[in-house]
């Protein structure tokens, strides 16, 4: 039989309310509180219950996660359930924090349930499956049943439906599916336009997601003492592309030494070229400085406008490259830039 583990807070474990919210993590090889209900509903044995105070998780997150992951290190389990957390904000946060950590560490599915008003929903819906739940423990049976039904589907290895089919909160994960009615796009577009023209309600197949905001970086205090690096998504590489960076959907990046180089030599001279397949390469191949403006930046260095140019430029290809890969490569580059004392970056894109 497959095995499951349930995470609950101090209140549902019957330890106490607000006064016990600092309760430190504990694991019990038994069914505590709602674990009994879950055990009845699930096609798996709930072998352990993990209990942690909501405030403890809130104020000692790192410590709490470490302890709980430690508990689980030697235990075999197929699925992890957290909550239901109803409308309790700190409990929702705790279920999300531990759920995400367990999923990342042990690569097991994690299912939870929270009321739409629970702030944990927006914080963690991308990381774990969260079902919309009731406001209070009065809905324990309904919410746990929904969790268990979906968990059973996972345990049976069934093909899982979309967020709207299954009922969990959308996670921002979009995949291609074939419509059962096979209705062609032309008919869907026509129908949507007729509705829009008549002022009737319609459902866009691509809801516009909220745009990401990045915190504004402080300005460089004194450029004349600063080290500036050049980074590009324009695919400029040495002609033999030593790091075999892909020309589309890149997962690799490279950094190439430009110490003492006044300007980037071109493809014909056997120096640099672009491998980016998303734009006409002719202009970049003849003069790579059009994409990585080393020559111009060198002039400013000589004038003393900037302290110096960092010894390497960093490069990858930005066409078809996924956000996740781009973010990973960016973080990897930043590590080098930080370690080597770079103060600011000029990032050129194509």
């Amino acid at each position: 039989m497959k095995k499951a583990i349930l995470y609950i807070n101090q209140f549902f474990a019957g330890i106490g309310g607000e006064d016990k919210a600092d309760y430190t993590p504990e694991i019990r090889a038994e069914l505590v509180g709602p674990a009994m209900l879950l055990n009845q509903l699930l096609d798996a044995e709930v072998t352990h219950t993990i209990i942690c105070g909501d405030n403890y998780m809130g104020s000692n997150e790192e410590e709490a996660v470490k302890t709980i992951l430690g508990f689980l290190a030697d235990i075999e389990f197929d699925i992890f359930i957290a909550g239901p957390a109803f409308q309790a904000g700190r409990y929702g946060n705790a279920c999300g924090v531990i759920g995400k950590a367990v999923k990342e560490k042990f690569n097991v599915p994690v299912v939870s349930s929270m009321n739409p008003e629970n702030p944990g929903v927006d914080m963690f819906k991308k990381d774990i499956y969260i079902f919309p739940g009731g406001k209070s423990a009065a809905k324990m049976r309904t919410d746990m049943k929904q969790i268990a039904e979906f968990a059973n589907k996972i345990l049976r290895g069934e093909r899982l439906g979309s967020a709207s089919d299954e009922g969990y909160y959308v996670r921002g994960i979009r995949h291609m599916v074939w419509r059962e009615d096979e209705q062609p796009a032309s008919e869907r577009a026509m129908a949507m336009l007729l509705k829009k023209l008549k002022g009737e309600e319609f459902v866009s197949e691509l809801p516009i997601p909220k745009i990401d905001r990045v915190p504004v970086a402080a300005p460089v205090a004194d450029l004349s003492k600063a080290t500036i690096a050049l980074v590009t998504s324009g695919g400029i590489v040495p002609v033999d592309n030593p790091d075999r960076i892909q020309s589309a959907s890149a997962t690799r990046w490279g950094r190439y030494n430009i110490e003492g180089v006044d300007k980037l030599g071109n493809r014909e001279e056997g120096q640099f070229k672009t491998i980016h397949a998303g734009y006409d390469p002719a202009a970049a191949d003849t003069n790579p400085n059009r994409v990585v403006p080393l020559d111009a930046l060198r002039a400013y260095e000589k004038e003393g406008r900037i302290g110096k140019i960092h010894e390497y430029f960093y490069t990858t290809v930005g066409t078809g490259t996924t956000e996740a890969e781009a973010a990973r490569m960016g973080k990897e580059m930043v590590e080098y830039l930080h370690n080597e004392g770079v103060d600011a970056v000029i990032l050129t894109s194509t």
Binding site: L223, I228, P281, N287, P293, A296
Partner: peptide, 30 residues
């Protein structure tokens, strides 16, 4: 395809444009 220098214009103009815009980027940084 050519962020900082239009190949159909003279080299001198391309350089002026590239030098100017990189300068604006430096101003932006401070």
């Amino acid at each position: 395809p050519y962020p900082l220098g239009d190949p159909s214009t003279p080299e001198k103009e391309q350089w002026k444009l590239r030098y100017h815009r990189v300068g604006v980027a430096l101003t932006a940084l401070e």
